[in-house]
Design a protein around this nucleic acid. Sequence first.
DNA 1: CTGTTAGCGCCTTCAC
DNA 2: GTGAAGGCGCTAACAG
Lengths: 339, 339
Amino acid sequence: MSKPKQVTIVEVAKAAGVSIATVSNVLNRGGIRSSKETIRKVELAAEALGYRRNTMAAGLSRNKTYEIGLIVPGLTSYYGQLAEHLQIEAHQAGYHLSVFSSGGFDPDIERRNLEVLLQRRVDGLICHGLAMGIESTRSIVNSGTPLVLINGWNWPEDISIGSVNLGFAEASKQSCRVLADRGCEAIYYIGSKRSKAIDEQRRIGIEHGIQQYASHLFHEIIDFHGMDVEATLQALLARHTKPIGVIAFDDHIAFRLLSGANKLDIRIPDQLRIIGINNDYIAQQSYPGISSWDIPYTYQARMAIHKLLAKFGNQPIEDMEVREIEVPLTFIERETTHS
Amino acid sequence: MSKPKQVTIVEVAKAAGVSIATVSNVLNRGGIRSSKETIRKVELAAEALGYRRNTMAAGLSRNKTYEIGLIVPGLTSYYGQLAEHLQIEAHQAGYHLSVFSSGGFDPDIERRNLEVLLQRRVDGLICHGLAMGIESTRSIVNSGTPLVLINGWNWPEDISIGSVNLGFAEASKQSCRVLADRGCEAIYYIGSKRSKAIDEQRRIGIEHGIQQYASHLFHEIIDFHGMDVEATLQALLARHTKPIGVIAFDDHIAFRLLSGANKLDIRIPDQLRIIGINNDYIAQQSYPGISSWDIPYTYQARMAIHKLLAKFGNQPIEDMEVREIEVPLTFIERETTHS
DNA sequence: CTGTTAGCGCCTTCAC
DNA sequence: GTGAAGGCGCTAACAG
């Protein structure tokens, strides 16, 4: 069952008593002006017939789609927010953003989504991280479609035209400082190896932070995956007499730790201090509130879109000189680090 | 700056030494068989040249896009999950799903998204609720594009071909029962008028629940918007001696209540019992864990896609007889109702 | 089985 | 300022 036939410019032209070229001119606000009279006639006819321009035909004929594709690993918390903000920014720039999730970090789904987007001939691509390997990505993306990465550290220049990265390393580093300042006796980082590149940034920051602010303190890196929250908390606490500081991979993990601590009647922040990342709803609304790092979504989204537009040639070229933009996070202190 | 020219079937045909029709047959048309030999030649040539079919041209020519548009009010928690599952189901059916968020329940953004999708000539539309009014929706959607609603109760038949609704009313009703069974002295529903239709379903359920299971209990409906959580909790508790039961609009609100209660040292479930809806991460991981209703995302997504496919004529028609499918939720009991 | 030939709906020169 | 004509890349008959 195919779709009912839709109104085309041919019919609008007929109804308005002009040629299809004129209709096209009037409707697309092109550089070409028409007489007030024709404009009115055409708009009236279009309105009356319920004309709706066919994007495929337009795109095909002018070799430009005004569509940007977004691939993110999921649509929860951070990624969902990011997608929403990107959609808004894209729209303001006259583009529209099609969102695709690659279900976790599944390279196959990612490849498929990429393929779909390229077949649609999107004008540009925004990807968060990238689960596929470098070679694999290169072979697909080297079609000339501009690609900007979000939180994609160290990708070769022939693949991406640059990236917009959150300052996780710096945030993690400063987290160490906060915990040291607050008198913690030890600093633990609970990471998530699953999210490779992102976890790595945290580690880099932690390493620097320890070195610079807490070299005298005990410290350790633990992976959250497969960890028994309660047992771990008890074990860690048993080792120390003064409060210990924990930097969590993100607010979700911080929250798990918090729940575990509540259950075990561990006093916060007397015995345990926690810092998360993302400043999710969860961190804001829990009790005690979780100290966390806020993400400037709007700014990040705007930067990403601008980078793409610059590549399209619609924007001043200045931004292009900086390949990797670092977006700084803001520390929001709450009760898990502060009494 | 327009895109670099991409490879077309013309070039593939030339390279393979066959006609463009043959290339088209081999590459994208299953129905027509070709000799092993030509197939090999064509596939080789396509591969070598890096051919990628142009979706716009294909769609234009066959008047079918294999694209489904999704419009949801946001991409967080429930909506994000839903979108992901719909994407998976759509893919399994050979379609792809473009996700759009209408930022909260903004009718203007919704209208714009709808317009974009219709201009793309999507084969079908899935919308969650619908912020626009009936008339407004009708005038846009009466283009012949099939529309299935998710959680859209009572929309006229000429607009949607049916809807897939979560059984919020029944869940709310049963929540009353649970709270009554657990010996609560009063039942409060903390709703969210902002989410009109959804809140209304909860209310309907609550009303029935009270009537059937708790007519002897004190009960009241409160709107969360603008409410002072701690003050309210104290006021409510002051009224009663036995535990009170609270049904929250969703897990987010349940969580806020829980945090407030923790802060005020209100004992759970001794003094206060809470039931949420959605079974979010937040409900699963908080302490005490929040009793909640689990949503069968996969089932709901599958039903929605099937309804659409049926309309396309690819599927048996049987499902179509039921206009509104109700998807039942499952109660997950945790510590907020149970000691 | 393969090739020829029309479109699909729109945009874009280029004459008028 | 307006119209005629030639594509854009692909598919769908229909011949051969």
